[in-house]
Each structure stands twice: as C-alpha cells, then as structure tokens.
C-alpha cells in the first residue's frame, strides 16, 4: 500500500509552546482517514505543516514522499484544502473566490466541465455565489471553501474541521461528496471532533492528544481495545455473581439494571455464565467512537468531573487505562 501522508517524530514548537510532540501519522492511498483530537491537540498545526504553510521544528513530514515545505507549490497540484475557519476576500464574491482558487489549481482548463462541476456543487450546497465575502455567514464561507475544494479533482483532500458551521442537511451533502471522491480513489485526511461524522465516513482513525499520536487503526481495531457494555435487569445479590465473572469490570447498579464492562475480546466468554444466571432484558453495546475518545481524554473529563463532584465510573476506568499506558 502506498503511503500518501506520513510524519515521523514531527515536532513543532511556537516559542516555548510545543504544539506537536513527535507525532507519527500514516495515511495510505485511497483511505478516508479520520484525524481526531480535542481543540488545541495539534490537528491544524499538522495540516499546516503538511501544506507547507508552516515548517517542522524537527522530525519529518512527507506528502506523496516529498517534503511539503520545499515542494509546496508542486505538491499542491494534487491537493485540495478546506480550513476550519474560512476567511474570504471582502471585496470578492464567493463565485469569484471559487473561480480564482480553481484557476490557480488548474481545474478550469476544460471550461465547460468545470462550469458543470461548479454549478452542481453550488446547487448541492445551496450557495449563492453573488454575495461579497463579508456578507457570508460562517457556514456559507465554509461552503465557498468546500465548493472550491470539490470543484477540481484532487489526489488528496486535506480537510480541517470542514463542516464546522454547516447545518445537518449540508453535512449530509458533505458526506456524499466525501463518498464520491473516495469512490474515485482519492485519499482524504479529515480532521474533526465530530465523532459521528468520523464514524460514518472514515476507514481508519488516528487520535492525537497534546501533539502526540495516542491511537491509530481501523474502527474495528480500536473497538477491540475498549470494553463492551453489558446490562440486564437487576435482581438482589446478582452484582456479586457478576463481579466474580472473569473479565468483568466496573459492576454497578443503575436505574434498576446491573451494568458492567467486558473487555471486547472476551464478550463471548461471558455469555454462557450470563445464560446460566438466566438474566432478563440483556443488552450488549459495542463501544462507540465517543467512548473510545473519552478513553483517551478521560482524565481531562475526570478532572472536570472531580471539580464538579460527579465522576462516573466509566470515566474513572478511562483514567486508569490512560495512566496505565502512560
């Protein structure tokens, strides 16, 4: 498999602040890669380095096996970019901005085809191209950048929280466009903190935190690392029997149900015992990406919770596992 994006030990410092701390990231050709992390984790910094807009302090970043800082203009022939907070030229209309960016990307050589693509996207995103930059709302500025990005085919789409400010309907349009370019064989690096979006779109996910990669893999692989939630109707005394089961953690009673977590690869082993207990109203919930995410940021959440005095055991489990890894 060909690697489209790769960073090794990527470090970026702004003065004394370390934004990226030896980040390793791999995106292979043709995948839609989710790039997850909370605000300030270093997602935008990474993308700016990949675009050659900022220079790495140390380490290596490669785009199509070339240095994006040295060969920025050349590499950009194959790249489309959407920032998370789009600034537009105040005195140019959205249509003019889209045309300018498309011409610079060389996407307008076949004028008729370009006009068709542009019109299709304007219709899909319901964007009025005649307004001046200052008159657009946040969501509409975002749409201008999205139309400009999708109007010219690219090998790699670098998208930095591209749907911020879009309404749910427009998010669906965006998802369709991602599916379209993915079907055409393009690679997408999608930075986001909207987990449902990533869960729906992405083949693989990298989670970063404080400038370091903490987890990377397919969603199935990542789910493997976490625990599956099991619950059934509570009957007195059952909690002790459950606690004795091999692989069960965090047994608790919650609104008339016993809940506990099982390591995802040991669920099958627990089932016979549950059958023997004759449990009622059994539910088994695989971990959502949200839990995956919380697992890595659990201690931040726990920190907030502790000061709020309401820490749930799930979060504390997250704390343990992160500390164990650290």
């Amino acid at each position: 498999m060909e690697t489209v994006v790769s960073t090794h030990g990527l470090v970026k410092r702004f003065g004394r602040v370390t934004a990226l701390d030896e980040l390793d990231l791999e995106v292979t050709r043709g995948e839609v890669h989710g790039f997850l992390g909370p605000n300030g984790a270093g997602k935008s910094t990474t993308i700016r380095i990949l675009l050659g807009l900022a220079r790495a302090t140390a380490g290596e970043a490669l785009l199509f096996d070339r240095d994006p800082w040295r060969h920025a203009a050349d590499l950009h022939r194959r790249v489309a970019y959407v920032p998370g907070d789009v600034s537009l030229w105040p005195n140019l209309t959205g249509g003019e901005a889209i045309d300018l960016l498309s011409r610079l990307r060389g996407g307008t050589t076949d004028r008729a085809a370009y006009a068709t693509r542009k019109q299709r996207l304007l219709d899909a995103f319901q964007l009025d191209p005649r307004k001046k930059g200052r008159a657009y709302s946040k969501g509409n500025r975002q749409k201008v950048a999205l139309v400009a990005a999708f109007a010219t085919p690219a090998d790699l789409y670098l998208l930095d929280e591209p749907t911020s400010g879009l309404d749910p309907l427009m998010e669906q349009v965006f998802n369709r466009e991602i599916a379209r370019v993915a079907a055409e064989g393009s690679t997408v690096l999608l930075s986001s903190h909207i987990l449902s979006e990533v869960e729906e779109l992405c083949d693989r996910v990298s989670i970063i935190r404080a400038g370091r990669l903490v987890e990377s893999g397919t969603l199935a692989e990542l789910r493997h690392l976490t625990r599956t939630e099991v619950a059934f109707v509570h009957e007195p005394g059952r909690e002790h029997e459950v606690a004795a089961l091999d692989g069960a953690h965090d047994v608790r009673i919650d609104s008339g149900r016993i809940r506990f977590a099982v390591d995802s690869d040991r669920v099958a082993g627990v089932l016979p015992a549950l059958g023997a207990l004759g449990v009622q109203g059994l539910t088994i919930t695989p971990p959502s990406l949200e839990e995956l995410f919380l697992r890595h940021y659990g201690d931040d959440v726990a920190e907030v919770d502790r000061s709020g005095g309401d820490g749930s055991s799930a979060d504390r489990a997250g704390t343990d596992s992160v500390e164990a890894r650290a």
Binding site: H76, L101, L104, A145
Partner: peptide, 17 residues
C-alpha cells in the same frame, strides 16, 4: 493576517511567486 493568503498558498502557488 486575515487568513486569505492561506487559501491561496494551499493551491499550486509558491510563497515566492
């Protein structure tokens, strides 16, 4: 400063050009 240069430099246009 306004951020519009970033849109432009993310297309095949070098900083020097």
């Amino acid at each position: 400063a306004h951020g519009t240069a970033e849109l432009l430099l993310a297309v095949p246009l070098s900083r020097t050009r």
